[in-house]
Design a protein around this nucleic acid. Sequence first.
DNA 1: GCATATTTGTCCGTATGTATA
DNA 2: CTATACATACGGACAAATATG
Lengths: 217, 217
Amino acid sequence: MSALPSSSQAPAAARAADTLREHIIEGQYRSGDPLREASIASALGVSRNTVRESFRLLAQDGLVEHAPHRGVTVRSLTAADIEDIYRIRRALELLGLEAVGPDLPLLSDLVGQAEEAAALGDWAAVSTADLRFHQTVVAALGSPRLDAMFQRLLAELRLAFAAMPDPREFHEPYLRRNRLLVGLLESGDRAAAAAELVAYLETAERALSRMLRWRNR
Amino acid sequence: MSALPSSSQAPAAARAADTLREHIIEGQYRSGDPLREASIASALGVSRNTVRESFRLLAQDGLVEHAPHRGVTVRSLTAADIEDIYRIRRALELLGLEAVGPDLPLLSDLVGQAEEAAALGDWAAVSTADLRFHQTVVAALGSPRLDAMFQRLLAELRLAFAAMPDPREFHEPYLRRNRLLVGLLESGDRAAAAAELVAYLETAERALSRMLRWRNR
DNA sequence: GCATATTTGTCCGTATGTATA
DNA sequence: CTATACATACGGACAAATATG
């Protein structure tokens, strides 16, 4: 499933990419912000060459954009991006739902993790557990390539999550919905589970595109 | 639709990646072959830094693998890879087929290009036109992300194509099948078109996995 | 539109660590 | 186990493109 942080003995470029990825996901840079090679190099204590390599890695995740001679900027999502992402989510997660079987306890456990994080008010952790939940649904399809693609997709989504003004208001409703979804799956009611998933995605997409429209004036 | 070669004034890393991509696709390196930074740098007349950056770009296409402290090697596909790729092709191209409409003349034109290339015995060009044909089918879905993913998928496939002993025997049958497919679409018989596409993919997958099994002892 | 400052693009030399014959 | 080849990483330098006043 990857998405693991690189160990301390991993290549410097990978470690640099990890810290930058975290900073971006946590919203420490805003969409469109330029990432200057020199300042980041000195901030992370690595050379400019290493920073440039880490940029290429981040570009693979869709978290930054690279424009020749203008450097990289934090990716900024448009309304069309949100639409595209959620269209694909609907298609893939619905397919995945039909294949979910032995992973059900894992899904239930992930909802539990999200609930614990919510109790602590750690909405970043809630978000992480939520995304891992949906990644697990897709993983039921057993396709490494779809897994990788979906992971990039969710990484992009975090850009939008980071821009949400009230994380709690955004993430809290999904706790109950995911719990409900697991219940429906456990009771074997696939049709109802599918309907609930579609409704979930619909709600999230609306909230995000509303935020985007608001943010872009 | 991208996949365009970088212009001569593009960054050196991008140009180097283009050259290497072409070499790999044309089968000048065999699967598993190591790509040595130093030798490639001197061969292309660029610095090792630039070569390293180009490696990161090629990794995005899935054409090379990067192992820490062991450098990059030309990706080698397994039977599981072929299976995964064709499962996704079936799903995406069938969806795309339903959305094909105003692109029909373009599809017909691409088959024409393939036929011309075949007449000249240029099987690499036949392969390119064929892949572009299927890329166009998926493009009918109108999703930039699915387009990008599909392009990576087809780039990986070319690794297997390059390993085919007799390109003509492999590619020739698909000319007629694509022409047939366009005819069925033009006559509006979507069901028959879908069936033909599935049969096409089945044949190709079989041929490739047979080759893989033979090649790996 | 021009001159200047900033930043990226690219190369080189070198030192260190890692894997393998 | 040692030797060697190679990747990793740094820092400095300069050219080229872009942004800024």
